[in-house]
Computed example of a mutant assay.
Amino acid sequence: MRTSNHLIGVLNFLTFLLSIPILGGGIWLSSRASNTDCLKFLQWPLIIIGVSIMVVSLAGFAGACYRNTFLLRFYLVVMFFVIGVLIGFIIFAYVVTDKGSGRRVMNRGYLDYYLEDYSGWLEERVASDEYWGKISSCIRDSKACRKLARNFNDVPETADMFFERKLNPIQSGCCKPPTDCGYLYQNETVWIQGAGLVGTNPDCNKWNNDQQQLCYDCDSCKAGVLGSLKKSWRKVSVINIVVMIILVIVYIVAYYAYRNNKKMDNDEPYGEARMTKSQPSAFHL
């Protein structure tokens, strides 16, 4: 009995530790939302899952330490649903970030982003008027574009130096005009029309050198947000998959340890089938 309780206690302590990276992933997405992605509703599922695993693990740990059958049963039932929700969230994250990526541009180190490359629930939510006003305002307040400025020995970087840079999706989509617009580089966030002409991309006429406007109303900026979200969610999903596999293994071992506890409560020797007893006990979880 003590061995089984100790095993369940150790396993629940492990699941408590596993909840930390999930919760940390949600907090990391939250910090990303404050600085770049600006979609704070997206990190809450992770935070809720992480907190749920943490609370349930503590219940299972307490149940093992104090031999509380109710808490152990509560742990097994709730953890089963938590694992199911985690699997659902992983699938959802991959489905909504499946389409779309940056396009390579000749003689450029960065990628260009186009809204038509994305589709689905996430694209509709980001591009909607209800959310985009808040998102663009958040990006503007984060000063993401102002951080692009670089000086070398008090000399601003040249166009060739800028073209070789690896810009993140937000910087590429929101802080400069699309490359096919043909604007000429003056500095990181100031561009002028080349020979008085602009490309056919609708974003070309939306670009403004006003540092409070830039390309914040461009579709390329919305695509940049989606590209940034895809990178963030994919990183977190890798952690979630590893945690989910470990949780499933831990749950299976904890379930059999709990069944062993129940057999001992019914005075059954370990490994003895219930039907071999003269008066078989009732079946319980």
Rank of each mutant, 00 (worst) to 15 (best):
M1P: 10
T3Q: 11
N5P: 08
N5M: 11
H6T: 11
H6V: 14
V10F: 14
L11N: 01
L11V: 04
N12S: 05
F13L: 13
F13A: 13
I20E: 00
P21Y: 09
P21E: 09
I22P: 00
G26V: 00
W28I: 06
L29K: 03
A33L: 08
S34W: 08
S34A: 15
N35E: 14
T36N: 09
T36M: 08
F41G: 09
P45A: 07
L46A: 07
I47T: 06
I47M: 05
V56F: 01
S57Q: 04
S57W: 00
S57V: 04
G60E: 02
F61Q: 02
F61E: 06
G63D: 06
A64C: 10
A64D: 05
C65F: 14
R67P: 01
L71R: 04
L71I: 07
L72R: 06
F74A: 07
V78M: 01
M79V: 09
F81A: 08
G84R: 08
G84W: 07
V85M: 11
L86T: 02
G88H: 03
I91G: 05
F92Q: 09
Y94W: 12
V96E: 07
T97R: 03
D98H: 10
G100M: 03
G100K: 00
S101W: 04
N107F: 13
N107A: 15
N107I: 08
Y113P: 00
Y114A: 13
G120P: 02
L122F: 05
L122S: 04
E123M: 13
E124S: 15
E130Y: 10
K134R: 12
S137F: 05
S137M: 09
C138Y: 00
C138P: 00
R140L: 14
R146Q: 15
A149H: 13
A149I: 14
F152A: 11
N153C: 14
V155Y: 10
V155W: 10
V155D: 13
T158D: 14
E164R: 15
K166G: 14
K166V: 13
N168W: 05
I170Y: 01
I170H: 01
I170C: 02
G173C: 02
C174N: 03
P177Q: 10
P178R: 05
Q186V: 15
N187I: 07
V190L: 13
G196D: 07
G196M: 06
L197H: 12
P202I: 08
K206M: 12
N209Y: 03
N209V: 04
Q211H: 09
Q213I: 05
Q213S: 07
L214C: 06
L214M: 07
C215Y: 02
C218M: 05
S220G: 06
K222D: 07
L226W: 04
G227P: 02
G227K: 01
V236E: 03
V236Y: 01
V238Y: 04
I239K: 02
N240W: 04
N240S: 13
I241N: 03
V242W: 08
V242H: 04
V242F: 08
M244Q: 06
I245D: 06
I246N: 11
L247G: 05
Y251Q: 15
R259F: 06
N260R: 10
K262I: 14
K263Y: 11
D267L: 12
G271N: 12
G271D: 09
Q279K: 15
S281C: 11
F283N: 08
L285G: 10
